[in-house]
């Protein structure tokens, strides 16, 4: 668990971070969201002490990291950068093996772990002897991720990890990211200025402005219970899409009609978000999809029924 309290960092006269506090539970993903210059990177870098805070405290698993040896601390925290920061003079294999080498792992263990990660990250074995410059942007970013994950650190810090990628590649890596079991166990802090990315990948979002957190909460909380106009305006542009992502079938469950035609296809989980459920109609070309809740109740619903449930759900939200 990460617990940050009253962090302040000033560069000259710029208050980059102005009293930030938050907590992240084990296994949770928190997105630091905000426009450029609002202090996201500075906040993140204080967590592995690339930047020392002026004041405030940071605890990871109840240990005050400001009292730890910074090098040992960093070896236990994965770090992924926007421009990947791969060593141009190291091969892919050497790049991934940097932390194991610092931790003095033996070669067999390192090799085993690298092979394991390669499979999970859809990388080819042939890439291992290549230099980073010989690979595509997407491949480089995957290797940056592999490098951060190789020693299986419990905490992962990511600074705009997908920011340098084109839209298609980014969408693909987002999918892989969510599917990666390695990441499900990790406590992740993800810095991004991309609202969609935050909604898609994070369990909770801290929306920042001018060095402060304006609101912290789940995507749905930010959408449906914005604390002020800043939050509302920030999400306004992509509102519909965000809502489709923020709402789960379980949220609509009571508005969905029971019964319906039984179809052979396997039932979907109610943990699915509305956006993904709508996509099912596109893929399966079926008239209805089946969803099953935690009590094994199955409902077969059509596209129109789903949209009607969404409309009812919306009218019940407080108008804030």
């Amino acid at each position: 668990m990460i617990k940050v309290d009253g962090l302040v960092k000033t560069f000259g006269t710029t208050k980059a971070v102005d009293g930030i506090s938050f907590e992240v539970a084990n296994g949770e993903t928190l997105a630091l969201l905000g426009t450029s210059g609002c202090g996201k990177t500075t906040t993140l870098k204080m967590l592995n002490r690339l930047i020392e805070p002026d004041s405030g405290s940071i605890y990871i698993n109840d240990k005050n990291i400001l009292e730890e040896n910074p090098e040992a601390l960093r070896r236990g925290i994965g770090y992924v950068l926007q421009n990947n920061g791969l060593f141009p003079h190291y091969t892919v294999a050497e790049n991934i093996a940097i932390v194991p080498q610092l931790l003095k792992w033996d070669k067999a263990k390192t090799d085993r772990r690298i092979n394991e990660l390669l499979g999970k990250l859809h990388l080819d074995k042939g890439h291992l002897t290549a230099y980073p410059s010989e690979l595509s942007g997407g491949q480089q970013q995957r290797i940056g991720l592999a490098r951060a994950l190789v020693a299986d650190p419990p905490v992962l810090l990511m600074d705009e990890p997908f920011g340098a990628l084109d839209n298609v590649t980014r969408a693909k890596i987002h999918g892989e990211f969510k599917a990666l079991d390695e990441l499900k166990r990790k406590t992740i802090i993800l810095v991004t200025h991309d609202v969609q990315e935050a909604f898609e990948l994070a369990d909770r979002i801290a929306l920042m402005d001018k060095g402060k957190i304006v609101q912290i909460g789940t995507p749905a909380e930010l959408l449906f219970a914005p604390k002020n106009n800043f939050v509302r305006d920030f999400l306004q542009e992509q509102r519909l899409q965000l809502e489709f992502r923020a709402i789960k079938i379980s949220d609509l469950w009571e508005h969905l009609p029971t019964g319906g035609d039984k179809v052979k296809s396997p039932a979907l989980s109610t943990e699915l978000d509305l956006w993904s459920a709508l996509e099912q109609f596109k893929f399966s070309k079926a008239e209805t999809i089946q969803v099953k809740n935690s009590e094994d109740v199955i409902k077969a619903i059509s596209f129109e029924q789903l949209m009607a449930a969404y409309a009812q759900y919306k009218t019940l939200q407080p108008h804030e």
Binding site: R74, Y79, G85, F87, P88, I98, L102
Partner: peptide, 25 residues
């Protein structure tokens, strides 16, 4: 490249290791 140096530090290299393994090469 500052990003590369930062990555080296962030992975837990000491100043000497950053010099010998990254900066000098």
């Amino acid at each position: 490249d500052a990003t590369v140096k930062e990555a080296a530090v962030a992975m837990g290299m000491s100043k000497w290791q950053v010099l010998v393994k990254v900066e000098l090469p």
